[in-house]
Design a protein around this nucleic acid. Structure first.
Length: 296
DNA sequence: CAGCCGTGGCC
DNA sequence: TGGCCAAGGCT
């Protein structure tokens, strides 16, 4: 079948405008792609870049990482945010080492079975690392397709199934072209068709865009409720974990108590960290990153 | 499925 | 200044 104009324009644009990102180079390993995808979940590229370099330098393979304690992954994660991702990445390394002989699986279902790898990330790895043909839908693609195809400024929170149904008809037949298209649409959303101030004057698909043709009507859908952060358990968890990250070993209860003055919320946050496996309560009443006691 | 899970930069 | 946003996933 012939390639749609939209797709062809996106592909041509990508040839000239793709960023030079280290996980996109020809010698980037599937493991490197996986690490980048996990880090990029809700964290901007600029902050991921140095973290990815350090991570790959320390743990060039899943097997190397699996040999270290999970707490080391949490510590190395630093301030990327959502530290459960670090834990899941370590679990991934262990699963890949024990179940897949240290090599990332290429099969979509096997990728989906890995901890922390969902509908987006599994398809991203299968596409970027293995050149398979998949509809790869992240927040960028969702926004681009919402505008270009549906003519709506922004995306109402939708289901993965609905996203894939919208995206699938546009995916080129040839796997190699499809893989390039997948990264190219994402790039367009990240650089041109942005959430706040889309650069329609520089957009390669402005003539294909239903939203632009309609005069760029403002978003009219259901309001997304603000997330909030100050005063939440998330903020307390962040402070507690920062203490453990910055310590060289187990810390006494008192070192944690000083970061938040409200004892009920503080205790709830700490319990949550323990329940998530991000913190180990030790028999002597101190606390440590998971596995740190064993490593000492 | 709605709510939860960190952090920092930008307008 | 502060709400919004950034390559989601899990329960």
């Amino acid at each position: 079948m012939s390639t749609l104009p939209f797709v062809a324009h996106v592909l041509d644009w990508y040839d000239e405008n793709a960023r030079d990102l280290p996980w996109r180079t020809a010698d980037a390993s599937p493991w490197g792609v996986l690490v980048s995808e996990i880090m990029l979940q809700q964290t901007p590229v600029s902050r991921v870049l140095p973290a990815w370099q350090a991570w790959m330098s320390r743990w060039p393979t899943p097997t190397a990482m699996a040999a270290d304690e999970p707490g080391e992954a949490v510590r190395m994660w630093g301030r990327l945010g959502y530290p459960r991702r670090a834990l899941r990445l370590h679990e991934c390394a262990v699963a890949i080492t024990t179940r897949h002989d240290g090599e990332l699986p290429t099969d979509l279902d096997a990728l989906l079975a890995l901890p922390g790898v969902g509908a987006y990330t599994a398809r991203a790895i299968a596409s970027f690392a293995y050149g398979q043909r998949h509809a790869v839908v992240d927040t960028n693609v969702r926004r681009v397709l919402s505008r270009v195809v549906t003519g709506v400024a922004d995306t109402a929170p939708g289901s993965a199934a609905r996203d894939l149904a919208l995206a699938e008809p546009l995916v080129p037949d040839d796997p190699a072209v499809a893989a390039k298209y997948a990264v190219a649409v994402m790039e367009l959303g990240a650089l041109v068709c942005t959430a706040r101030a889309p650069r329609c004057a520089d957009c390669p698909v402005v003539d294909d865009c239903a939203w632009f043709r309609a005069g760029k009507p403002a978003y009219d859908g259901p309001a997304k409720r603000p997330q909030g952060y100050a005063g939440t358990d998330r903020q307390v968890r962040g402070r507690l974990l920062a203490v453990l990250r910055d310590a060289t070993g187990p810390v006494p209860q008192g070192a944690l108590d000083v970061v938040w003055n409200e004892p009920v919320q503080r205790a709830r946050a700490l319990d949550g960290l323990v329940a998530d496996g991000l913190v180990d309560p030790l028999p002597d009443g101190t606390y440590a990153l998971p596995g740190a006691a064993r490593a000492n």
